[in-house]
């Protein structure tokens, strides 16, 4: 057993777990933060993406030993009691997710992208989502929503209705 203390969504959390525990299992099984999903457990699908110290990572590949003292942001930490995070709002509006299983990972990857690059091109968005598999949507409506969210985050008006 190892003791680990880290910050998750702005709160200090700690647990005592076997050393082979991944950050994903820690979040899901110990902290009841089940928003991050397990799609493969080996870094292939991106369903477990969270942001650690500003960087998007596959939480299934990170062991507890690597997260001591670090700042983790999960899908549960994006909205607050007043507002949906713009990505969440636009993903809902555009119907960007279908089964939704890939969603938390995709949104975290997109959030990391927008933090770095407030006005990404379609190509840059495709690149940023390259590690997030989605079997349902063909990614099209996600890209639209990410573009829209980038407008909102830049303080511009988002195109809410799709210009077909």
């Amino acid at each position: 057993m190892v003791n680990v203390t880290l910050r998750v969504n702005g709160e200090t959390r700690s647990a005592s777990v076997p050393p082979e525990t991944t950050l994903l299992r820690l979040l899901r099984d110990q902290f009841n933060l089940t928003g991050s999903k397990l799609g493969c457990d080996v870094g292939d699908c991106g369903a477990c993406t969270v942001i650690v110290d500003g960087q998007p990572v596959n939480s299934c590949l990170m062991l507890v030993g690597q997260v001591e003292g670090r700042e983790v942001l999960t899908i549960e930490g994006l909205a607050n009691a007043d507002h949906l995070y713009p990505l969440q709002k636009l993903f809902e509006h555009f119907g960007s997710l279908q089964c939704g299983f890939c969603g938390p990972g995709v949104i975290m990857s997109a959030k990391a992208l927008l933090d770095e690059n407030p006005d990404p091109s379609t190509e840059e968005i495709r690149d940023a989502l390259g590690g997030n598999l989605c079997r349902c949507t063909g990614y099209t409506k996600m890209i639209e929503a990410i573009k829209g969210a980038s407008c909102i985050l830049r303080g511009e008006e988002a195109p809410l209705v799709k210009s077909a």
Binding site: C40, R126, Y139, T140
Partner: peptide, 17 residues
Amino acid sequence: PNLTNYIMPTSLDTPDI
């Protein structure tokens, strides 16, 4: 039998639809 060697479309392989 894994997503490393079974290749399926990512956002980079999906065309404009």
